[in-house]
Simulated scan of single mutants.
Amino acid sequence: MYQNYFFDFDGTLYDTYGGMVSAFVSAFENQGIKLDKIETYRLMRVESVRYCFALLKEKYPKLDEKKLHEDYHFFEKGNQELAEPFDFAGKVLETIQTSGGQSFLLTHRDESAKEILKRDGLLEYFKDFVTADDNFKRKPDPESLDYLLDKHQIDRKTAVMVGDRTLDVDAGHNAGIAGILFDPDGLIKADSCRPEQQIKTLKELIG
C-alpha cells in the first residue's frame, strides 16, 4: 500500500454518472435534442463532461450554450441524492486511516462533493481537499496536486493519484507521483497514461 492517497470523486469514490448523464440528456432535451444515454455515458467516462459539451456544441452550433450549462447544473444538483459510494469505498478509506496513511480529495466537482461525503459519514477520513471552488488548473495539470503535496510536505514516493480517467493518472505522473486507474467497466484504454495499477474494484487498493 501507498501511504498518501489522492482520490478523484466522480466515478472513483462515488458512482455519480447516472445522475450526470440524466442531467446532461435533460439539458439537451430542453432544446429539442435527443441524446443516447449509453453513448453519452461512454463519452463522459472516456473523456469528460466538458468534452461532451464541446463536441455537441460543435455539432449543433445554434444551441444556447449558456442555457445548456445552467440546465445541466440545475438537473445535476437535483440528482445528487442519487450519488452512492462505490463498493468498498468506506472500507478502503478506513483501512488507509487505521494503517497510518492519509487520504486527500482532488475533484473537479464543487463543494457539493464534501457535502455528499459528510452525508455518508466519509468526510472524516480526509486530511484535506481541493474542489472546483479552489480555482486551480484542471487535471491533468498538476497544480492542485502540487499544492497539496507541498502543503503537507509529502514524500512523492509514498503518494498515488486514484481516478477513473486517464487525465487523473496523467495528473499524478505530472506531479511526480504514481497513478492508479479505476476502470470498473473496462472502458478505458490505458496505453497512453501507463498507470502503475489498473483496478476494477476499490477493494484492490487494500488487497
Rank of each mutant, 00 (worst) to 15 (best):
G32C: 15
Q102D: 14
F75Y: 15
K137W: 04
R138F: 07
I180C: 07
K127Y: 13
R165L: 00
D155W: 09
S22L: 12
K137T: 03
Y125I: 01
K189M: 02
A171H: 02
F53T: 02
Q198Y: 02
T166S: 01
D183C: 05
D120C: 03
E143V: 12
R45S: 12
G19S: 15
K139N: 03
L122Y: 09
S22Y: 01
D146F: 01
Y51M: 02
V92D: 10
V162Y: 10
K200R: 09
F129A: 00
K203W: 03
I38K: 11
L82F: 10
A54Q: 12
E65W: 00
E70K: 10
G207Y: 05
V46N: 03
N79S: 05
S48T: 14
S112T: 12
E204L: 09
D10G: 13
L63I: 04
Y17D: 13
T98G: 04
L55H: 08
N135T: 08
K151D: 09
A178L: 03
K59M: 07
K34S: 15
S26K: 15
Y14A: 01
Q97D: 11
D185T: 01
L82G: 08
K157A: 14
G90R: 08
K62N: 10
A27Q: 14
F74T: 11
D120M: 02
F74E: 14
D64M: 05
Y2W: 14
G186H: 11
E84G: 06
L63E: 00
K137C: 06
N135M: 11
D36Y: 01
E39D: 14
G18Y: 04
N174I: 01
K118E: 13
Q153D: 07
L117I: 06
A159S: 08
L106T: 13
L55K: 10
T201I: 03
F6W: 11
Y51W: 13
I177V: 14
D170C: 04
T131F: 00
I180A: 10
R138K: 15
K118R: 13
S48L: 06
Q97A: 14
F74N: 10
D134R: 00
L167T: 11
K200G: 08
T16I: 11
E58K: 11
E204R: 03
D183K: 02
G78F: 08
A89N: 11
F9P: 00
M20V: 12
K200A: 06
A190Y: 06
H152F: 14
L63K: 02
F129E: 00
E58H: 10
L187D: 03
H108F: 12
Y5H: 04
L181W: 03
L56I: 01
Q3C: 06
S99M: 09
E204G: 04
F75D: 08
D128M: 01
D155A: 13
K57N: 13
D183I: 07
K157T: 12
G11I: 09
L93F: 14
L105S: 10
S112P: 00
C52Q: 01
D134F: 10
D168K: 07
K62H: 13
P140M: 00
H73K: 08
H173I: 03
